[in-house]
Design a protein around this nucleic acid. Structure first.
Lengths: 217, 217
DNA sequence: GTGCGAAGTAGGGAAAACCCCATTGTATAT
DNA sequence: ATATACAATGGGGTTTTCCCTACTTCGCAC
């Protein structure tokens, strides 16, 4: 089997040196190139066919987020594992949205890197435990914020049902057909929804529902 | 040290039996109660002080999502680990938003459960690798959707202006007043928007705009 | 210049949404 | 048992939205 071709992107030479040594100790890995910032990396990938990129996030000139975005735009099949020094990382979401396949702390154990490379190479994902916790914390934060800021009105079962259908784009007639009720009844439920939410027409109600995340995208 | 008090919630007695045996094999765990559905669980927790809940998701009467939501509303410090049989789970997001501390496959290894209990008991989170991959896949889906968004139809200046006002909740009349145009003209622009977006009424158009992030919250 | 397509402007009439009001059923309190 | 409250169901009639069509203006090509 061919070796897995890896490119390192990090602005600290010392880290690259150490990390290269570490990776070369895996018999199945070959470090084919290195870059010290995003721009350098972008020109590198034109000439090198890599399987996996280890990408630092904080870098001069062009940071890991933008570099990853641009690289994945051109080569969507590229597999990038993001590296970060500390955990207080605001870029986590951005990197995930950019489409990286993994996200790890630089301080991870050797075995973790081995595991990550194999998993990502095989088409999977790898995330450090710490990263997963961080993500989950973010979700929890979101949840708590939601609870605090909206004391949402309470809806009856029918109202919830109607609201769901409204937010699917159904008109009164369609909702009536779907629920086996008369249009008039649907109108009444909507009327109640208007009152409870402080809205005054369907469009407003839909906007309200989206803003308060009563319905999902 | 006191044992970690655990409650099991699952509608299959056989699974509960097996799982209880498994948990009891950990010297530091004590299963203090069991429930076979959400309602039963909700009345249970009034009388039992539990450290960790293992919560099945698919259950009759009251499913794991709602049960967790209600329980956490009353006892926000409750630590819930969600259990699921298969991976094709639409409830993942809902459970996370409900605020569970962990999410695992029932088919997980014994060591995983041990690890999960300890981590969650100590205030952390635990998610099965498979769950993490699933989450990451979802993020990737989001990313791809964003990319698709790029081939949006092109709107004229007036259309963009009208769309913005629509998404603020304005009716045709209000838009007409705000733009110093006749209602009829607004209607025509909306009509064009319908055609370009493949929608057929204002509500649909608003949903379209939100989904494609044409307008911001 | 003349023609042609795209954006912007409306009117008339049909359809849907909306408001005010009435009736029924069910649960809770006194 | 009776009163109260409210969810759920609808009717009549007004307002708003929506579709089809038409006219003007502007830029651009020939």
């Amino acid at each position: 089997m061919d070796k897995i071709r890896v490119i390192l992107v990090d602005d600290h030479k010392i880290f690259r040196d150490g990390f290269r040594m570490l990776l070369q100790s895996f018999s199945f890995v070959e470090v084919i190139a290195e870059a010290s910032n995003g721009n350098e990396f972008l020109s590198l990938i034109e000439d090198h066919q890599a399987d996996i990129i280890f990408m630092d996030i904080n870098m001069p000139q062009l940071d890991g987020v933008e570099a990853s975005q641009k690289a994945l735009e051109k080569y969507p099949d590229l597999k990038i594992i993001a590296l970060t020094t500390f955990l207080d990382d605001d870029y986590l979401e951005q990197m995930l949205m950019a489409g990286v396949e993994g996200y790890m702390l630089k301080s991870a154990e050797i075995e973790e890197f081995e595991k990550a490379i194999v998993k990502v190479y095989e088409g999977g994902n790898y995330f450090s435990d710490e990263i997963v916790s961080l993500l989950s914390d973010k979700l929890n934060m979101l949840r708590k914020k939601r609870k605090k800021k909206d004391d949402l009105p309470e809806f009856t079962d029918r109202e919830k049902e109607v609201l769901e259908l409204i937010c699917k784009g159904y008109g009164n007639k369609q909702i009536a057909e779907a629920t086996f009720l008369s249009i008039k009844t649907i109108e009444k439920h909507k009327s109640s929804l208007f009152q409870k939410t402080g809205t005054y027409n369907t469009v407003n109600l839909v906007i309200y529902a989206f803003k308060h995340q009563i319905i999902k995208f």
